[in-house]
Write a protein that binds this DNA or RNA. Structure first.
Lengths: 226, 226
DNA sequence: GAAATAGTGTCTCTTAGACATTATGAA
DNA sequence: TTCATAATGTCTAAGAGACACTATTTC
């Protein structure tokens, strides 16, 4: 920020969110139907303007957008990147501060004008929302290679086989079971819940785990990946 | 102030740049003396407003700021993060899209009202520039653990011992020479220049290298770090 | 007991770092 | 020849993955 060049240009500033969740072992992105022009009636990323009187910062704006337009509270949220230029919005030169949220299916209640679309089957999106989603996917897939990020797609408790399946769904490749468990152990990310889960049927039940308190918000990092 | 259209928030948007360079084996950040209020006469990060008529996007604005205010052209530049809130600028709720640039000493010519300060001896900075610098340092130190990022602090050609010293200056710890060379080799980042460099004195000269064309802009990544 | 999945033990192959050795120029 | 640093060879320790084996539930 620096010395003025006369009047400030009129630049539109908004916040867009990429909400990712898992359904049927596949990443889905949440879209909302736009109620106003431009692109009225079109499915798009949840977004909105900054409320200067109300928001403590842009992340706070994103939290508000998620609450009001998607009905989500308490999601894992991180800033993704900022997209800008004269062409991305027909109203003129604009800036979109993009955030990425990860939620479990349970955190995502049915909500009017909200749907989930598999990222593999995303159609056309308005604005540059396709590029924003692509950036979110790249970020999540990259971070999943060395951090605990994917736990935010799970519910309160989960089994290690379930968590491994979540990682595999994101990364798109199978993982070695022994190595996976070694890494989870090293990260000291999880604690066992004293109760076993019984899955579908005729087999040994799996131990349930929850995320340890220090990592409810922060990520755990694995030194040498995975 | 210009609150022309009702639904759009009154938010100031600017671009700030953290220019990092090496001097005496220590990271330095480039500051410019502000010529206008607020904080007139104070040393701060180079920044400026977006020129909607002129800039193709915010990164383009950053390139222009670096050219006009610091005299830099062709620097490695990447978006860092976006800082926002009501308190960071006395003029009101503001958004700063921050970029990080890495330049060699040679790319940074003497320029009026421009100085380099060791990051270890950074005093007070106006706005939230201290947080922006901290984010840049965290990013650069992290990425230097697994990528070719530090080559952008070197000049056109350099020796492997020099490059290792650059990495060590950034990371703040010595590296294993054999492993370092293995990794550089695996990344296929460098190509030898047919001419040896003679350093200070009575010892074997070192081979000069340059960055291979595919990595002039993009980064080379090492799978398992370093 | 059979089937199915959870969880662990162990071996091997790969990789990283420590150390030692050779190379090459200047004084 | 000595000195200083460049460059490389090699051994060892640590880590990751493959595989196999045990555990525990339902039917």
């Amino acid at each position: 920020m620096n010395q003025t060049e006369a009047p400030y240009p009129q630049v539109l500033v908004s916040v867009d969110t990429v909400v990712l969740t898992l359904q049927d072992d596949a990443l889905h992105v949440v879209l909302v139907r736009r109620s106003q022009p431009p692109f009225e009636g079109v499915w798009a990323l949840p977004g909105g303007y900054i409320h200067a009187q109300e928001d403590a910062d842009a992340q706070d704006s994103a939290v508000r957008v998620l609450r009001d337009k998607v009905g989500i509270a308490g999601a894992y949220l991180e800033q993704l990147a900022t997209f800008s230029g004269p062409a991305r919005d027909p109203r003129g030169w604009s800036v979109a501060i993009a955030y990425c949220a990860l939620v479990s299916s349970a955190q995502l209640p049915p909500h009017d004008g909200v749907k989930r679309v598999p990222v593999a089957a995303l159609g056309q999106l308005p604005f540059d929302h396709h590029a924003i989603v692509a950036a979110a996917l790249a970020r999540v897939r990259n971070k999943s290679q060395y951090s605990s990020l994917p736990v935010h797609l799970c519910g309160e408790t989960f089994t290690l086989p379930q968590l491994q399946q979540v990682y595999e769904s994101i990364l798109g490749e199978p993982l070695n079971k022994v190595s996976f468990r070694r890494k989870m152990d090293e990260m000291q990310l999880l604690e066992a819940v004293p109760g076993a889960m019984r899955s579908g049927g005729a087999h040994r039940p799996a131990q349930l785990y929850r995320v340890r308190a220090p990592f409810q918000q922060a990520l755990a990092l694995s030194v040498r990946g995975l």
